[in-house]
Design a protein around this nucleic acid. Structure first.
Lengths: 125, 125
DNA sequence: CTGGTTGCAAACGGTTTGCATTTTT
DNA sequence: AAAAATGCAAACCGTTTGCAACCAG
């Protein structure tokens, strides 16, 4: 029913792609369905601060599901990085385990973002 | 000019508190000023996915400026945690250094969020 | 006089909601 | 027939923008 068309599709992008297959479906239904899926942990909802929510299926193999970004606070550019992931994952696993136990949370995903200024924005000041 | 009234105040909360001191100021000016400050790296802008942006001064001593949260995807509850921070900081410092060099980013802050279901939301399903 | 800052009100854009209709059981 | 799901249009709400008034140099 939900095809994975993009890395982090927005609700509207999901609507458009689903609409191709089921032209009868409306944007409202997409929103309502997404809300359900998110509440049941089947889909994750992220917010990169660009005004629209992003969604992603959580059925991925473990190796995926890491959301590590560099966000430029000057121009809003977002860079996905994959460096140092191994070390990070190792620590994150431990941290998740500890946090789950202590706060009685079932952790299903995580988001790591570094904020700063990209090369372009550093020069332009 | 900007008083630090809360951990992560929204634009409107900032407006209200500034407005008490300078009743002449308008919400628009707050937004415009915040945008400037964010672009110059003096203030950080976060998004917890609740529809409004959150801001925080970046003039803090280094030990602060860590934004580590547990976010419940069921009910939206946000828990600030401080466990495992030391280990994380150690890794983050290394990661930041590497990323800065490789992507020519000046990293000034970071955000770590774990998504999952809190104890309440696990039961209610 | 010129350029920048401000507040107000209107516009904007993604998301949510009310409600009548359709579908499902 | 009752309950659930759907689409449409309107409402919502945080944020942005156009514009005229105001202020600074």
């Amino acid at each position: 029913m939900l095809s994975k068309t993009k890395e982090h599709p927005s609700a509207e992008e999901i609507y458009l792609s689903v609409h191709k297959v089921y032209p009868a479906i409306g944007l409202t239904t997409v929103y309502r369905t997404l809300e359900l899926l998110v509440q049941n942990g089947l889909v994750f909802k992220f917010d990169f601060g660009d005004g629209r929510a992003r969604f992603e299926l959580s059925e991925n193999p473990q190796s995926i599901g890491h959301h590590h970004h560099l966000v430029c606070t000057g121009c809003g550019r977002i860079i996905d990085y994959t460096d140092f992931i191994d070390e990070e994952i190792e620590l994150l696993k431990r941290t998740e385990k500890g946090l789950s136990k202590k706060h009685h949370f079932t952790i299903m995903n995580h988001l790591i973002q570094f904020y700063g200024l990209c090369d372009r924005c550093q020069k332009s000041r």
